[in-house]
Design a protein around this nucleic acid. Structure first.
Length: 559
RNA sequence: AGCGGGGUGGGGUAGCCAGGAUAUCCCGCGGGGCUCAUAACCCCGAGAUCAAUAGUUCAAAUCUAUUCCCCGCUACCA
């Protein structure tokens, strides 16, 4: 079972949690997701891309409390932020929604109600921590106490200031309410549970035939084999989607956020006249891009829910490796973070080169360690030296000497190179190997440099004009193919090459078959501009120093 | 601790599932060339006991076992 041109394909990315700004970790799923969508489009597939903000849960309720604003205000702010950042990065979503919208509430509650009707949910009494002063049950994030391992002040879910271990709320010594400081007491209450074990056989079969990165599949299968247990889907929080039929509780975020994949499709369909059922009920191929840290939600909980309401389950789950900064796991509080707005946009970093770095520095399933020096080297050596240089030297040479596209016909060597690259790219993105796809395109540019060098047009222009023109024609046709094939990785740059080639329309509307569509001899060629500028050593040193300062000050603050 | 992923010249990376002769490619490094191009481009070269140990085999980076190291997850963080 592989994708065909008649499939209705829907791509989604893990929803960014709206309690903070966009950082490089988000890009690890959004950029490959977007590139994948663009590859599919260039190769003529029928694909849509939806995504949105995840707006509920304890951390947001708490962050709003601390900031002295309503959760609504908080999530609206970050929702707008993410939407904007993704636009600037050319993440070409068809719809960017939010889980704090009526269309989402409706879809999420309908799913839960249907699960209940189908007998997959059970209410059960449990004992949970309670604050007598605030008259509320305390989710783990609302508890503080002493860490049993290191003695630091810890939260109910994690020893965030001390040893960084994940904790169970029960392990905390002297648990207290985070709002008022009163000691937490145990009190009986009633919660709702999804009967996950009922889905065991289904989930094994589902994961065995699941496409995407093997990482996702193996991980989930291991988890399922260890035995599934009932899974709590309600929480004692004020902020969230009311639990249908038990409105003093809210739906657990992980029981409703990925319903956004459906609700966003519905809302997009409503606005455009499409049919969401094409994706979620009558066939359709859904591809989820996520980080490796949330595989079990997407390969275990979510497909179980979908199965429980008889909706279409994902075709593929594409899990990326994690992002590190200067060798450390991402951590805002410790300063190991690259913020998209502060560190890239405001510093004037070319965003297509960021896309390139994310896609081609390492394989999609491996951890990516962001180091400013490496970023510089990829940009200066590969984008400037290979791609930018090739485009510029060819276009400038022709512009200087002819002003227009010279006479010529595409000959076998170049024709063959293009075919090989197209095949390689096709295979690579079907296997979710984005680095391979991008590298194959860059190899085409490297080949172009060899070609230009060997033809020596600066000599032939004086000795054999006809030969010279035909050689340059080869170079131009190759550049046209490169523009189309690099579009998924570098959409802005591809468009600029397209325009510099004097082509009509937009490269975003091209198909891979246009690669070899003959260029019109005699058409005017505008004066080219360089595509990329190198980052000088001093600039990159400054950026690296800024990062180190951030890390240092975070460290001294912690001590 | 359990489960999953990974370890290949200085950095990154391909090859591993379906074992085969000089282990791929990019960057960096050394030498040469070109002069159209953003000191860019092209060619040649040096550099790796493929994490370790034991085993299977005519043959192991690749298969098996054990060990070490890194990362993620472990159901109330998302």
């Amino acid at each position: 079972m592989t994708l065909t041109k008649s499939d209705k394909i829907l791509v989604t990315c893990g929803l960014p949690y709206s309690n903070g700004t966009a950082h490089i970790g988000h890009l690890r799923t959004y950029i490959p997701g977007d590139a994948y969508v663009r590859y599919l489009k260039r190769f003529g597939f029928d694909v849509r891309f939806v995504c949105g903000s995840d707006t509920h849960g304890a951390p947001i309720e708490l962050a709003a409390e601390e900031a002295g604003i309503t959760p609504q205000k908080l999530v609206e702010k970050y929702h707008a932020h993410f939407k904007n950042i993704f636009e600037i990065l050319n993440i070409g979503v068809d719809f960017y929604g939010t889980t704090e919208a009526p269309y989402h509430y409706k879809r999420a509650q309908t799913i839960i109600r249907t699960l209940e009707e189908n007998g997959y949910v059970e209410a059960r009494d449990v004992e949970l921590p309670y604050c007598n002063t605030c008259k509320t049950f305390l989710a783990d994030r609302f508890l503080v106490g002493t860490c049993p391992y290191c003695g630091a002040l810890a939260r109910g879910d994690e020893c965030d200031q001390g040893c960084q271990r994940y904790l169970d709320a029960d392990q905390l010594i002297d648990p207290r309410c985070v709002i008022c400081g009163s000691p937490a007491i145990k009190r009986k209450t009633r919660h709702h549970f999804l009967k996950l074990p009922a889905f065991t056989d289904f989930l094994i079969k589902f994961n065995e035939q699941l496409k995407g990165t093997p990482l996702a599949r193996n991980y989930a299968l291991g988890w399922i084999r260890q035995g599934l247990k009932d899974w709590g889907i309600s929480r004692d929080l004020k902020w969230g989607i009311p639990y249908p039929g038990d409105e003093k509780l809210v739906l657990y975020v992980w029981a409703e956020n990925y319903a956004g994949y459906i609700s966003f499709t519905e809302e997009w369909a409503r606005q455009t006249g499409a049919d969401w059922k094409d994706y979620w009920i009558q066939g359709g191929k859904v591809v989820n891009f996520i980080g490796a840290d949330i595989v079990y939600h997407h390969a275990v909980f979510w497909p179980a829910i979908l199965k429980g309401v008889n909706y279409n389950t994902p075709y593929a789950i594409v899990a990326s490796g994690m992002v590190k900064v200067e060798g450390h796991g991402l951590s805002k509080s410790r300063g190991f973070v690259i913020d998209i707005e502060e560190d890239f946009i405001k510093q004037g970093i070319d965003l297509d080169s960021v896309r390139y770095y994310i896609l081609s520095y390492t394989g999609h399933t491996k951890d990516l360690d962001f180091v400013w020096k490496d970023f510089q080297s990829k940009l200066n050596n590969e984008l400037v030296g290979i791609l930018g240089n090739y485009a510029y030297r060819v276009l400038l040479f022709i512009h200087k000497n002819f002003k227009k596209i010279p006479e010529g016909t595409l000959e076998t060597p170049v024709d063959k190179q293009i075919d090989e690259a197209v095949n390689k790219i096709h295979e690579a993105f079907h296997d979710f190997k984005f680095k391979e796809a991008v590298d194959a395109t860059m190899q085409l540019a490297a080949y172009g440099n060899v070609l230009f060098q060997q033809c020596e047009p600066w000599k032939t222009i004086k000795l054999d004009l006809k030969q010279c023109q035909n050689d340059l024609y080869q170079c131009l046709q190759l550049l046209k193919a490169i523009a189309i094939l690099i579009e998924p990785a570098l959409p802005s740059i591809a468009e600029r090459i397209w325009q510099q080639l004097g082509q009509k329309g937009s490269v975003h509307d091209t198909n891979v078959e246009n690669c070899k569509e003959a260029l019109k001899a005699g058409a005017d060629l505008p004066k080219p501009e360089v595509l990329f500028t190198k980052i000088p050593d001093e600039a990159v040193d400054k950026l690296a120093t800024g990062l180190n300062t951030r890390i240092e000050s975070a460290r001294s603050k912690a001590n």
